[in-house]
């Protein structure tokens, strides 16, 4: 018994070591880039280990005359917030409708099939199609176009996730509310939405992050003034081939939503990511 316990202990120790190594490999690049963002260009090129941290990279990225980062950041906040709100609202209503309001099976299947098939399509192919469409109807506001595109892009995911969370709510609760005298809207607002709040938060965080991160469609549909953070970074990297430390600073700044989400919503992210795939 005791040898067996010892054996188990050493196995556990080996596994913890393995996990620790994986964690170092995961976090390492972020630490390295974070360090680089506080270095001077020369310190980085020299490969110095000990250095005096400077904030000039951040100053330049955020407030520099030629830097578009602040504007990119605002664009991203606007696009991600608006498309998240839209995708969540539309996805919630559609999910509720499909699950609860007795649509014929083919309607339900049509939407579910769409949600699945749509995921197969590379966004780049849609970027081309949307570009042609928006150009065709003369939609000149890039930001509005991008919000529409991101809403479309993430609506299937929102619909899929919200449906799986909705499915967990017993129908009887809604029936009870209805008998208690609640209207359709009141039932949603006072009973369904509060109960599925964790699911809504999960979906919201994920859609926001995905929209924030989205690159090819944003690249296709925006210009210099309407560019989002990923587009801004890409342009910056291409145009200023050698401003490595500023690129590092910009990278750190654009990871902020991800870090915030991880810090405050880790539980919700896991819930959302697994619910989407497993169900």
């Amino acid at each position: 018994m005791s040898t067996r316990r010892k054996q188990n202990l050493s196995v556990d120790r080996a596994l913890l070591g393995f996990l620790f190594l994986a964690a170092v490999l995961t976090i390492g690049p972020f630490l390295w880039i974070a360090l680089a963002s506080f270095k001077t260009q020369i310190a980085l090129l020299m490969g110095t280990v000990k250095f005096t941290p400077v904030s000039m990279n951040y100053d330049e990225v955020l407030f520099g005359n030629t830097s578009t980062f602040a504007r990119n950041f605002l664009n991203s906040v606007l696009v991600a917030s608006a498309s998240t709100m839209a995708a969540m609202t539309i996805g919630f209503l559609a999910g509720y409708s499909l699950l609860r309001l007795r649509w014929p099976a083919w309607v339900v299947n049509l939407f579910l099939l769409w949600a699945v098939v749509f995921n197969l399509v590379p966004p780049v192919t849609l970027a081309g199609a949307w570009y042609e469409l928006f150009r065709g109807i003369g939609l000149s506001n890039d930001t509005v176009a991008l919000i529409l595109a991101h809403t479309t892009l993430h609506l299937p995911m929102a619909l899929w996730l919200l449906s799986s969370f909705l499915r967990e709510i017993p129908r009887e609760l809604e029936e009870a509310a209805f008998i208690d005298g609640a209207s359709f809207v009141k039932t949603l607002w006072r009973v369904v939405i509060p109960i599925m709040m964790p699911g809504l938060v999960s979906t919201g965080i994920l859609v926001f992050i995905f929209s924030w991160n989205e690159f090819p469609v944003a690249l296709a549909l925006t210009n210099n003034t309407s560019a989002t953070v990923p587009v801004g970074i890409a342009k910056f990297a291409q145009e200023n081939e050698i401003k490595y430390t500023q690129m590092a600073a910009a990278s750190v700044l654009s990871a902020i939503p991800a870090l915030l989400a991880l810090l405050f919503g880790q539980r919700y992210i896991v819930k959302g990511l697994t619910a989407g795939a497993v169900k």
């Binding site: 995961t26 976090i27 972020f30 991160n213 690159f215 990923p230 939503p257 990511l273």
Partner: peptide
Amino acid sequence: TLFLLPILIPGIIIGAI
């Protein structure tokens, strides 16, 4: 928790890093 981080970072930033 730590393993979640790369999933959430923009792909373009991963490229830059």
